[in-house]
């Protein structure tokens, strides 16, 4: 790295300091628009949604009753902030989390609440991405946006963790780097999952999610 780089970084911290809580120090801003329907510490809204692939349907409470912790990941195939977390399949933030927790009774569900007329809601495009990015966890289709709205999902990505009692334990960003290409040094989902699995309190249970708006139907 060039010697100047350090100052560049300092400049970034100083320049964006007010807004950069997410990058530099961890947590940032939360809902501007309305009471989030799903609240951390309360029962998460149950749902049944069809999968993008095949005919099967997925019901949240079936998983939690079966002793699974469920991670919901709001997804859009071409949102740059989703791309950031998938584009290098070797280093994929999400795929690696799925692998890391697959033997620990944790289920990941990708959620797409874009309406079918939006490019992000295109079945073909989503199937392409599943193939290209080697996404092995189910992707669910919420084309009318009802589940997204019930959770107050605002961005892609926007992450939620539901414990085996069906209680929402985390809502917010995937990590603490809302920059264009950087991957954060704190992954809130990993941190919260490890705390839940250890029977501990989730220390950072809510953060500002960053990314594209969920493309809800009008």
């Amino acid at each position: 790295m060039k010697k100047r780089t350090k100052l560049g970084f300092t400049g970034l911290l100083v320049a964006g300091i007010a807004a950069l809580g997410a990058t530099a120090t961890g947590v940032a801003v939360a809902a501007q628009s309305s009471d989030a329907k799903a609240k951390v510490g309360e029962k998460a809204p149950d749902f049944t949604l069809p999968a993008l692939k095949g005919d099967e349907k997925h019901t949240l409470s079936d998983y939690t009753k079966d002793g699974k912790i469920v991670v919901l990941e709001w997804f859009a195939p071409d949102c740059p902030y989703v791309v950031k977390h998938y584009q290098n399949t070797e280093k994929s933030t999400v795929n690696n989390l799925v692998k890391e927790f697959k033997d620990k009774d944790v289920v990941f569900l990708a959620m797409n609440s874009a309406h079918s007329g939006h490019p992000y809601g295109s079945k073909d495009r989503n199937l392409e991405r599943v193939e290209e990015w080697k996404i092995n966890h189910p992707m669910l289709v919420d084309a009318d946006g009802s589940v997204g709205k019930a959770y107050g999902a605002r961005t892609t990505p926007h992450m939620y963790i539901i414990d085996t009692d069906g209680i929402l334990r985390y809502a917010g960003g995937l990590d603490n780097d809302s920059s264009a290409r950087g991957i954060g040094d704190v992954n809130y989902v990993r941190q919260a999952l490890n705390e839940i699995l250890a029977g501990e309190t989730v220390t950072v249970s809510e953060t500002r999610p960053y990314g594209c708006s969920v493309k809800y139907a009008k």
């Binding site: 400049g11 320049a15 300091i17 007010a18 807004a19 801003v29 961005t155």
Partner: peptide, 24 residues
């Protein structure tokens, strides 16, 4: 600087000699 419900703020990163720096 507060993007609201979605999005991410514009950023300006200084890249130059260490004897100068950018403020807020």
């Amino acid at each position: 600087k507060n993007p609201g419900d979605t999005g991410a703020e514009m950023r300006i990163v200084y890249d130059g000699p260490e004897w100068a720096s950018l403020g807020e």
